[in-house]
Design a protein around this nucleic acid. Structure first.
Lengths: 218, 218, 218, 218
DNA sequence: TATGAATGAGAGTTCATTCAT
DNA sequence: GATGAATGAACTCTCATTCAT
């Protein structure tokens, strides 16, 4: 009774089409918002007919869910890649944060999408998004906890600390118009790290930091 | 030429009606979002006819602008009131932050409204909202700068520090679902202050803090 | 059961108010058309409240009927006045035509009003307007028939001849944009009379004309 | 960007639909007037849904413009067809006038439409209509000028003469209710021609006329 | 597979009219 | 007599979704 081509199987053609449509949806939802984007717009941008969309997705809401997840997934993918060669837990944590901010900077509109449009979805699907966000957070949290366990960070609540970092990164997109007037991304990230490290570093942490990069607080 | 009753004059009846409509709009826009709320919904909630709304507001967009501004104004009003009797700059700054978080907690949905729906407005009106946000921030920033000038805080960029606090407060609403599982507002605020003070306090600041409230980091 | 102040009695105040409202209605209906004019517009132009109009007129349609009649009545009044001192039937007929064209020129918008908006009225009231038009026509027709009886005009159907003249005058308003490019009112009237007289004058008529104004075809 | 099916291409199906909708619009606008006709009415008459109309026309105003042009175009098309086999310039001119009156008689309501509703359009589109009217007039004017050049008509201003004829034809529709009581179309046309020819014919013209149809003034 | 013509429910908005003051 | 706040019906227009081809 379900005539939608889900691409769960291994049919590459189907997965291709779904990707093509979602890409258009992410772009338009991000630029204009969910309600200001019509299904026809998405079809045009994807270069297909409007009717075809309904053979790959249940409805417009479905498209929104998948679009948001697509963005969140890209976070989860890109951050570990940026730190994969860094062994030092403090460096790794800092670099992960920098990477996060860079991704947010490169996809400001999409970042905002999740904030703006999640509420437009029904409860069930909102949970799916929340889980995806949690996964990204888990990655960052892991890096922080490593620093705590190494004695470099104080014994704070790692989840709160994670949100602190995550929100700071997101804030770059959410308040872009206010922040961008005053500084560039580089400065913003450095100041954020400065605040964060002052709040987190133990004496041992400070020593570790100065040993690695003397005369630098970051 | 313009038949909208603006309430700019001193006609109390008109201001009353406008307030009544805006209150309904804030509530519904906050709960359901701008596009999912119909003008009829607002009229029903306000207990009037749909047509009457158009004698007080130009269109639905106008209603959104005023609704958002109404929320922001309440911030600007409530924070100074919470600290008006506190003379010590450090205490005042901390208390302002606590007040801010409390207001956000009491109006979670409305706080999110500004984040979700500002983009639905045209450029001109978006500027109006930005200015209103800036005003609220100015209040907080003043408190922070007082601490810097007193030598209690380090010489950081006060605007960034302000955003740090503001975003932390907003985050309580934006990520409510994730945070509320783990802690109550009280804990959240205390942890935030803890992070913030560690990042900001000078040695003099720490001494000042311990003299006032021995054995407390906040 | 009829609470409308008709002004049929001799209450001067009521007649004054009605005149004031109708004047505004004629102006606005003429300029913008019936449907594009709101009752509020009329009230504003008349300098009264919208509600008051309904104490003098049944509804907006009533206002339209009276507005059209007001225009037609002014025709019926102005034409005889323009020829009242002219005894010669041919001169009188020509002068009446000139007067008609002049009135139409001075009230182009109002003239068009009757053409555009009569159909917006229900049957019953359309008849009233037709009668009023007929009355104006009767005046012109009387002048034409006097010429026929004097042997100056051929024995044509006087009603058709009347319409010929009336339509020619109205055409100045109806097709203003096309005609005004090419000539002024004076030229237009002279050409019209030229055509008309060539069509109507008997040999006796031509002699009569040349005796009065040698070397002139009008 | 523009999702309206214009039918400018050679897609027959689209042109068909547009024709179907315009036909319904012409009928209803003519019968009831522009503002008294709802888009739903037009859809019902055309046997389609209201929404579909907006896939073929921008808005109701667009529909009005096209409806008026449709009527004017039919004039431009039908008149030349009625005289295409007539070589004699005088006969051709008379026959064109008869044809014009016949078309007006067959489409009285539509003829009035242009007079009533053109003003409801914005300036730009009013120009388009004026041009279309000018084109129809050009055809008649050509026939009149041929008569003047042949020496059959006096050297009058051909544009004025054209309006004389055109307005006389339109008058049959505009004042139908007054005229139809007194005569049928045939009589009306004959009387109009009688007036017109008396005004226009030279001596040579009269001889030409009597040679062709002895004992007839038309 | 893919199209795009067609539907129809529902939204925002206007405005003639009424009626308490 | 006069006001203008309030109503609510009606209208135009949009757009997600379906389905015959």
């Amino acid at each position: 009774m379900n005539h939608i081509r889900t691409g769960n199987g291994d049919d590459e053609r189907i997965r291709q089409r779904r990707k093509q449509i979602i890409t258009a949806a992410v772009q338009l939802f991000s630029e204009r918002g969910y309600f200001q984007t019509t299904v026809q717009d998405i079809a045009d941008t994807a270069g297909i007919s409007a009717g075809l969309i309904y053979q790959y997705f249940r409805d417009k809401e479905d498209l929104l869910l998948l679009a948001i997840l697509d963005v969140l997934d890209s976070y989860t993918a890109e951050i570990p890649r940026a730190v994969e060669e860094i062994a030092d837990p403090l460096d790794r944590c800092c670099m992960a944060f920098r990477a996060y901010c860079r991704v947010v900077d490169g996809r400001q509109a999409s970042t905002i999408l999740a904030y703006r449009s999640t509420k437009s979805l029904p409860y069930q699907q909102r949970q799916v998004i929340k889980n995806a966000e949690r996964q990204t957070n888990q990655i960052i949290m892991g890096y922080i906890e490593a620093c705590i366990e190494s004695g470099l960070f104080r014994q704070v609540d790692s989840e709160i600390a994670t949100y602190q970092l995550v929100m700071y990164a997101h804030a770059w997109a959410l308040k872009q118009w206010q922040l961008a007037r005053r500084m560039d991304l580089e400065t913003y990230v450095n100041q954020g790290l400065d605040l964060f490290l002052h709040a987190m570093l133990t004496d041992a942490g400070w020593q570790h930091l100065h040993r690695n990069r003397p005369g630098d607080a970051r």
